[in-house]
Amino acid sequence: MSLVSIRDVRKSYGTVEVLKGVSLEVAKGDVVAIIGRSGSGKSTLLRCINGLETYQFGAILADGIEVGGIHANMRELRRHVGMVFQQFNLFPHLTAAENVMLAPTVVNKTPKKEARAIAAEVLAKVGLSEKMDAYPSQLSGGQQQRVAIARSLAMRPKVLLCDEITSALDPELVNEVLRVVEQLAKEGMTLILVTHEMRFARDVGTNLVFMHHGKVHETGKPKDVFAAPQTPELQQFVGGNG
């Protein structure tokens, strides 16, 4: 059974249809890389999966819960679907450890001491053990993004959504974040990434989804798709990106 099941999802802003019937199945352990031009609807699709955006038609099931359904328990859903943002969105008034501990203590009612242990564990995982008590403003962009990843991991998500998480970083900081994501993929974490990092999509992804004009235009194994893109749009897109 799919962990995330997207079925003919349509979404419009006013008269502009940004998702024109998208279907996608994501199994446990998949690393799905979604690529495409800006405006192709890839970020919108990702944000629909954890209910940050609503959609008008179709259905999204994440871990068996229908996203945005009338009886959907969005809190339960979001406990299992983590998200990392382009702009990090760390809580600036809290330290790295407090950023990570907040949701476990508040949402899961995990005792402080236990939450601190979780924070230590996930921050070690992203290589920031020594930055537990640093505030976001004291961290580099790459470090902030890794804390943001740790913050999501602390909730023990079943799937992690990554929305262009290296796009706001200086080029020399991109790799430290990608290495963390690659490690997560190796450990079997289910990942859905919207990304512009083609090499990363090819090397780490198990599935590649090329979105074009609000639709899944081409999909397949990354190596095959990159080696022999079938549609002219993807050929052009891949060609333009090197």
Partner: peptide
């Protein structure tokens, strides 16, 4: 982004 980040961790 602060609303979205806190919403995404189920708050």
């Amino acid at each position: 982004g602060q609303w979205e980040a806190s919403a995404s961790v189920a708050m």
